[in-house]
Amino acid sequence: MATPNTPLWEVFIRSRNGLAHKHCGSLHAPDATMALQAARDLYTRRGEGLSIWVVPSSAITASDPADKAMMFEPAESKIYRHPTFYEVPEEVGHM
């Protein structure tokens, strides 16, 4: 007997005020309301959360690992975007 598939959801949790929501896992639920409750029951049993987002897994568009070089390597050479690229004499103090 084949079972119809229940949609998959990705769960993001803000663990403390001031922190961003972080991906913590996934679950199955028939709709968004139940997904939110299931996320609460599954991922915050030990007081891990203050806020939950659930997103249908099918709504996520991911970069292709095959494009990794094209997507991410060009940024690696732009070292002038980092503060350590610039020299400031020590006497000037923290900047």
Partner: peptide, 8 residues
């Protein structure tokens, strides 16, 4: 723990 394999 992560989204389903997105690309076949």
């Amino acid at each position: 723990m992560y989204t389903q394999a997105l690309n076949s």
